[in-house]
Simulated scan of single mutants.
Amino acid sequence: MVEVGDLKKGMVIMVDGEPYRVIDVNKHHMAMGRGIIRTRLKSVKTGLVKEANFSSGERVDEANLTFRAAQYLYSDGDHYHFMTLDDYEQYALTEDDIQDAKWYLIENLEVSIVFLEDKPIGIQLPNVVVLKIVETEPTFKGDTVSGGGKPATLETGLKITVPFFVESGEFVKVDTRTGEYVERA
């Protein structure tokens, strides 16, 4: 059981006996009463999206998931192909299954495939991945007063903000949970 206040995007929960992936979570607080947790849920089995409201403090069941170590192989446009490391079995997942994880996938990246009742429903990325910067603006001397950063495009197409001293062609570590720059690799 997990409290609805702790729900996060991507979690798989059981609602009315059916597995749903949390797409969006919004917390609303009332003046004198308890808060309301508004969620958008996508059915793992049918793909239908529904909205559900929970009272603060309510509990829901977490789906019984299993994880298997795997390696990302390639994408053929429609599917992303993975191979489990224990028995070398291959699985093809759609873009709907992996969602925003597609921005962090590079060949041979080790991930975990998430299974619900022996059916793959998604992947779990490592917390940090190393990606190459393919395009960023040049740095000018003395351009560090603001303490901000500059936009950069990574090899997967992901756009992030990097410090001014980072150049094109360098490798950087990116946090897969927040999508933010961590450090140079």
Score class of each variant (00 low, 15 high):
1 M>D: 12
2 V>D: 07
6 D>Y: 11
7 L>W: 07
8 K>R: 14
9 K>R: 15
9 K>Y: 00
9 K>T: 03
10 G>P: 01
11 M>A: 04
16 D>G: 10
17 G>M: 04
21 R>L: 00
24 D>A: 01
26 N>C: 06
28 H>I: 01
29 H>P: 12
29 H>V: 09
31 A>F: 12
34 R>Y: 15
34 R>F: 03
37 I>A: 00
39 T>L: 00
43 S>R: 00
44 V>M: 09
47 G>W: 00
49 V>Q: 00
51 E>P: 01
52 A>T: 13
55 S>K: 14
56 S>H: 08
56 S>A: 11
57 G>F: 05
58 E>N: 15
60 V>S: 02
62 E>M: 12
62 E>S: 13
65 L>N: 00
65 L>Q: 04
68 R>T: 06
68 R>I: 03
69 A>S: 12
70 A>T: 05
70 A>S: 04
75 S>N: 13
76 D>L: 08
82 F>Y: 05
82 F>A: 02
86 D>P: 04
88 Y>D: 13
89 E>I: 05
89 E>T: 15
92 A>N: 10
92 A>D: 13
98 I>E: 04
98 I>F: 03
99 Q>N: 15
100 D>H: 10
106 I>G: 05
108 N>A: 07
110 E>A: 06
112 S>E: 15
115 F>G: 04
117 E>V: 05
119 K>D: 07
119 K>H: 13
121 I>L: 10
133 I>Q: 04
133 I>K: 01
133 I>F: 02
138 P>W: 01
141 K>S: 15
143 D>F: 11
148 G>I: 15
149 G>N: 03
150 K>H: 11
153 T>N: 02
155 E>W: 06
159 K>V: 15
161 T>H: 08
164 F>Q: 12
165 F>S: 13
166 V>A: 09
167 E>D: 15
167 E>T: 14
167 E>P: 06
168 S>R: 06
179 G>H: 01
180 E>M: 08
182 V>R: 13
183 E>T: 08
184 R>F: 06
